[in-house]
Structures are given as C-alpha cells and as structure tokens.
Design a protein around this nucleic acid. Sequence first.
DNA 1: GAGCGCGATAACCGTTCGCTTATAGTCGCC
DNA 2: GGCGACTATAAGCGAACGGTTATCGCGCTC
Lengths: 320, 320
Amino acid sequence: MTFAQLRSFATVARMGSLSAAAHALGVTEPAVSSALASLRRDLGDELVVRCPGGVRLTPGGERLATAAAEMLRLEERVRREVGDAREARTLLRLAVAPTVAEYVSAPLLDAFTRRRPGLEVAQEVAAPEDFAALLADRRADVALGPAPGPAPGVEAVPFLRYKLVVVAAPAHRLAGARDVPLGALGVERWLVGPGAAELERLFAQRGLPAPVRGAFTTEAAAQAAAAAGEGVMLAIAHTVIDAVRHGTLARLDIRGTPQDAMWHAATLDGARRSPEADALRRFVVTPDATQAIVARPGGVPAGRFRPPVYVSIWRAVEAG
Amino acid sequence: MTFAQLRSFATVARMGSLSAAAHALGVTEPAVSSALASLRRDLGDELVVRCPGGVRLTPGGERLATAAAEMLRLEERVRREVGDAREARTLLRLAVAPTVAEYVSAPLLDAFTRRRPGLEVAQEVAAPEDFAALLADRRADVALGPAPGPAPGVEAVPFLRYKLVVVAAPAHRLAGARDVPLGALGVERWLVGPGAAELERLFAQRGLPAPVRGAFTTEAAAQAAAAAGEGVMLAIAHTVIDAVRHGTLARLDIRGTPQDAMWHAATLDGARRSPEADALRRFVVTPDATQAIVARPGGVPAGRFRPPVYVSIWRAVEAG
DNA sequence: GAGCGCGATAACCGTTCGCTTATAGTCGCC
DNA sequence: GGCGACTATAAGCGAACGGTTATCGCGCTC
C-alpha cells in the first residue's frame, strides 16, 4: 500500500471509473489498473466490481475509500504543517477526556493562550485509557482527565479537585431524604454523558451491578434530561451549582457523596516534554487556571477560536 | 513519503533514538537513518536533532510524528476493516452538523439501527459546507444537517422542519415584551454552541452586523448559560420546550421568529448510493423517525453504543 | 585526550513501484 | 451477433525503495 496507489484508488472511487480516474490523474488507464491490482493483492479484496459504465465499490472498497481519503488529507496537511513549523509557529496538542472537553478545556485554554499569543492548540477528545499511548506516540503533548494508570515515561500532576454529586429533578422521591444508601438507587434510570467511567466505578466500589443507563451525547444534555425528571445523574458539582440554586435540579444526599476526585495533567517525563507542554503543565496548577475553570465563564469569546475543525467519530452497533 | 518511512519515523519519535528504533524494528541502524534522510529530503525539515543519548524532535518533527501515528493507525485499521467487510458486515458512514450530532442523530440512529440488526454506523461531526466533498470522497454515505449548497452528483431531501426561537433567562428585560425588533438585541451577548451559522445568517439577512458572541462547546451548555442570565440564545424550539415549560428559560418574542428551517439528508445520486444510505434516506422521512427525534428520547439506552471512539479536533489560535 | 556511543554517509544489491505501449477479455446494448 | 466502452494482463524500463556492510564525524564522558 503506497500513497500513489491510494491516490489512484481514491480517484477511482470518486469518479466511478478507472479510465475517468486515469484521465483526471493525467496517466494512462493501465497505470490506474495496476495500482488497483496491487491494492487488491495487498488487501485481499476485490475493492471494485465492474458495472455498466464503470465500476462500483465493494463493501471493503467503501472502507478503503474512506481511509484513503483520510490518509491523503493527512499527508497533504502534514506537508503544509511541517513547512509552516519552521517559522517558529508552535503547536500544542491536547488529549482530553470527554468531560474535560465539555467543561474544562475551553476556559482553561482561553486563559492559557491569552498569555501566549501565537501559540496554536489542537485538541482531541480521547478516552483516558488511551492517554499513555497518545503521549508516547507524540499524538498529544498533554493529556487532561482522570489520573491515567502509571506508565513508563509518563508523569501526571493533579491540578483540580472536583466533587461528584447525585442530582435529579426537585420532584424526585428521594429529594430531601437524608443519607440514602446507593443501593436504593440501583433501580433508577441513570443518565450519563459520553463517558460513564465514574458511574461504573462508583457502583463497582460498592460491589453493586452497574445500573440501567441512558446515554447522552453531552453531559449538559443528560443534566437537562435529569431536570425533566427522566432519571438521576452523577454530575460534577460545579457544573450543576446554578441549576441547583435555581431549583431546576436537586442534589440527592446519597451516602458516600459528594465523592472527591482530581483531574490530572499527564505529559511525557521531563526531558522529552516540549516547552509548551511544560508551560501548560505549570499553568494548570496556578490559581489563575483554577479560577478560569471554576468561575462559570460564560463561554469563550467567539473569534478567539477558529471555526471548530471538529471531527468526531462515534460508532453505534447493535446490542451485544 | 512511504508507510515504511513513516513507521521508522514514528518509532524513532517514540524511542527517542535511531538505534533503539532500529532494534525495535529488527533492522540495522543505517536502514532507519536512510528512511529518516528520505523524509528530510521530502519534507525539507530536519525533523530530529541530535541530543545527548539520542535525538529530539524539531517542531516539524513533532507534527510529522502526530500525523505519522495517525496514518499508520488508519492503515492498520483499514487492513482489518477490509478483511472484516467480506463477511457481509455493512458500515454506514454519517457526516452530521454539530447541532444534529447533539440533538438528532442519537435517537434517529437508535431507531434506525433497531430495525436493522448487524448494521454498523460511524458518525463524524463536520461543517455543512464540507458535506459535498465528504460524500464525493466516500468519507460519508449520508450527511445530515442544513441544506448543503447544490453540488453535482449530490441529492438532498428535507426530512425535519424545526423552528429557531430566541430564549433568555425569565428575568431578562425583554421577557414578556411583544414583537421586539432584532436590532434591539444587537448589544446583547449572544450565546452559541459549536456552530453559529444560523445566528450569523439571521443578522446578515437583516443587514445587521454579527453580534458579540460567547462560544460554548455544546448547545446544551449555552442553554444552561442563558438560563443563568449570561445572555440570549438562538435555540432550536423543541430542545428548549421543557426548559420554557419549567420556567428555566423564557422565549423572547422577537420579530421574525420563530424562524422555520429544515434539516436535510444528503447522499450521492441514485446509482452511486449504497443500499444502507438509501435505507436511511428513506427512513428519515418516515413518521417513526420524526417521532423518535422529537419525542425527547431521554437518551439512548447505553450498551447499544460502543464506548464512543470519539476523536475531535478543535484548534484555538490567538485573536485576529 | 582517548574511548565510546550515536548518527550520517557511502557503496552496493535485489525488489518493487509507477509508468509506458500493446493486446486480450468481458459486459451491455443496439 | 457484433460493436463499443471499459477493465485486465503482459512485457519492458528507469527510478526509487529498503535493506545490507563498512566507514566517517561528532560530542560526551571519564
């Protein structure tokens, strides 16, 4: 599999015909045909089958087309970026847990980049269990989220304590009840955002089976559903303060909550850490950073961020 | 630039040394050195510089490391997927606008995949202006969002009417006022989610300059901020019904609102459309689909979705 | 300052790539 | 049934790839 072959294939997929692709690429048809033959041999799939007027993709061909387009875009982009990088424009790559992406990173990065004009930040939402691999592969300079498991060459510093509380609609049967054992909530519908690790851990710690859950694409949507009486939710305290104060949500007094937890900033160890990563790692533990995150920021001024080049992949499959 | 070269470079980046990388790859050191030399020539960047005990990445090298890891993962994945695809497992690739990702696609896909066990769906959040390119490149089978501009080979069908309304905290000075001209809100702080196209269009249509905005990572977070009195918001009516009913948010009676709009499902034209894309395109216009979306679904049952392989990239740069 | 570890370069070699021209196969369609 | 459009294969060729062994250059360290 070479880039030239992928380029041929991507063009075939787009054009729906080998000869059209050959014309578009400025080569003869056998050149495209032979690139295709190489890919077929390499991948063990027909990739395309003949059809009236040209060629149609097999299921495998569809997947290759997707990946090929992706790889070619990456290749083109990296050519541009490596060139740009010489003119001292620095890039800080972040991997963040879903919750951090939703509540922490925007105000944090707003405050951080304000002090460092010219710095460019790319952020990627990832699962905390991938943090170590992301750092080792240099796909991220800093990872923000729950403490990653210890990994060689990776150092994590805690930077923000947060509390997990259970909330529900004010009309909930347990609103106002005192010191409720968690087991009493096993039959509830638990609403979760994109990550449900904390909830699972909470139940697992007490030896309880994981409860029924309703998954939302964002934490905020799950909160709105909780406010509408659709279930209970394990929420980060400072994100529901306003809602509780306004009486939209009520905190349930569940035994063992509020539960304390810490967000960590993980980087490679000292020598292999970039100056920017080091700067962010030092910044996140300052009071200014904490202030920026906790002070309900009202969003980041639009215009400081590029229109979000925001690629997310989410797979849905049938139930187990 | 070849995959073998990228593999060498990625290993060097991970190991921090050419000889260590050579050992890890099971080749001699000059082999790695020559791969590196090829990349240097190709990209016009040193990529790595010597340092005690090995080698350190240049800024350009950092970016290449990121992209290399990404491309190699893609290559590995596509090898697996093309093999899997032969056993009739079908994959439907979606591109969705940010708002659709937040409010529409989860219940829609839940209802759709329930009827078609075995179907696998991958979803990617993208800007509507990229829809045509995504479809043409086969990076998506169906694109859901605002009507894309007309493009050759792309067909869009409207499938859901929605209304845009202006909401704010109930204590807002204009709550209760009748038939307020939009211009009166030009000085407000407008809260937006990841996409702000509708808001910009609204002001542009009336010849008004785009207002001050506060950007949030999700629509729901912007709604919560609006409820907290931090500004006004252009929201999708059915997503704020509950909040308005509960008195958390109030709809402002702005002249020209509610504004009607339609979500569209775009695909390639007839012959080049996969059967799954066609099925979804037919499904989205059925009452069942509308029902699933509008009926405040309370989230998708967890377990029907894989842990979100959810990669998002968001760049922040300094203002101006 | 000598030794050592690490990267760069040189010379060489077999394989693959990417392209050409020429030709053969295959399918749909009038 | 044969024409036409399209894809597949063959033969050949220059260039690049990917690997080897041998050697050189450079900076640390003792």
